[in-house]
Design a protein around this nucleic acid. Structure first.
Lengths: 238, 238
DNA sequence: CCCAACTGTGTCCGGCGGACACTGTTTCTA
DNA sequence: TAGAAACAGTGTCCGCCGGACACAGTTGGG
């Protein structure tokens, strides 16, 4: 996968026939397939057929499928939002909610963003956005990077659970619950917790819960950094 | 993917020739391929060839490749650890570290565990293990489930970053840094933060940072639940 | 005018997961 | 004890995948 592809400016040639397609059209067609039938349904054949062309014509616009998926991800996450950089807590909360919303709109992005891959302008823009909300909080550079990693990881996890429970109905009537009923003796805490969790909150509840815990932990770090009073020992230590 | 496959007890038949293979041998062979060459290198052909058989013989033991991958995941994460259930903080920290270690030992598990899939005994055992450490903390059922989701999401995210930086050398000399140097004006906070983060800690630092923030946030919730003093308002609210 | 540059197409390849028919082997039963 | 049933491993075939390559048609510049 050529790393510069997402950043290169493509100068259109003068000679020869006009290209009948654009990268945007191709990406949109692929996006539509992924949104409706999943990432596995996105093949060169399929995308080209939806556009009314043969699959090999796409290779005039793209070096390979990896670049197509990268473009899809870039377009799916979209331009970074502009959040209120005044209040770091409000900004990060807003940022996380928007990130989760993007994941929920395009669940296949999770599959497309596992493993090493080059990052595009939009993805870096999202990082930039969250980082700029952390200036002046007293956190070091790596701490700021690690902070947005925790938030992004949480959004990913919740989105993954949401995708899992969407395909298998009401989440607790799934095969996991079935197998849990049969082996409830082997997993007592799990069985009890699942029963207790069946009554209250759904996915949104789970997301805000974890988000608040993370933000609380960040607030704790900032206050103990600003006022290094060794009162309740060991919290930020290793 | 048959959901019962990971849980079914397979009674060996009496008639006919003895099977030359076992599920364990097949899983081990596939695991060796994934560990050394990645999950993409795991094909029926390859695994069977490594065992000295044809690929179709594997279908006598497995319904399909999805079940093979599920078995690989089960064996890769391994039996759940037994952590000290007395101190929830120590227990969850230990649990998270062990989970991250498993992800680092078998980075392909991240790819294999995206999207909806049936859970095996070991995976449920890990959940059970973490949940049992949260009994008596005053958290509700869904809160306990959400807690381990946050921790698992964090471990996943760090493992993903580690896998990314392992393939591309020293993490900051990669193409991301190159593109960042060229477009530093578009991402000022990112450029500055990356420069500041290049000096201090590595991956282990990032993991413990997020872990401590999450645990701090949980501690804050527990204390405010036990002592519902409305002092610094809004922390655990929505 | 004509050639160079470019676009889209058709064909071919290796590899993938998997269906199916087949042969050979083992053991229970009539 | 003979045969049939159950089972193991193999070979062949299919459709689909990503991609290499040669090709014909089209366009604009020297």
């Amino acid at each position: 996968m050529s790393s510069e592809f997402l950043w290169a400016v493509r100068a259109q040639p003068t000679r020869g026939p006009k290209p009948a397609l654009t990268l945007d059209q191709i990406t949109d067609a692929a996006l539509a397939v992924a949104d409706s039938e999943g990432l596995a349904a996105v093949s060169m054949q399929r995308v080209a057929a939806d556009l009314g062309f043969t699959k090999m014509s796409l290779y005039r616009y793209l070096p390979g499928k990896a670049e197509l998926v990268a473009l899809m991800v870039e377009k799916a996450v979209g331009a970074p939002p502009d959040v209120d950089t005044g209040d770091w807590r409000h900004a990060l909360r807003d940022w996380s909610h928007r990130l989760l919303a993007a994941y929920l709109r395009h669940p296949w992005v999770l599959e497309a963003t596992v493993g090493p891959r080059p990052l595009g302008p939009n993805e870096l823009g999202w990082m930039e956005c969250a980082l700029s909300a952390l200036t002046g909080t007293g956190l070091s550079g790596s701490e700021r990077l690690d902070t947005i990693a925790v938030l992004a990881g949480h959004a990913r996890m919740i989105a993954q659970q949401a995708a899992a429970s969407r395909t298998s109905e009401t989440q607790l009537t799934t095969a996991v619950a079935t197998v849990l009923r049969e082996h409830a003796d082997r997993f007592p805490a799990l069985a009890e917790t699942a029963a207790a969790a069946a009554v209250d909150g759904g996915r949104d509840q789970a997301f805000t819960f974890g988000l608040d815990r993370i933000l609380d932990g960040l607030a704790t770090l900032m206050t103990t950094k600003r006022v290094p009073s060794p009162s309740h020992g060991g919290a930020p230590s290793a």
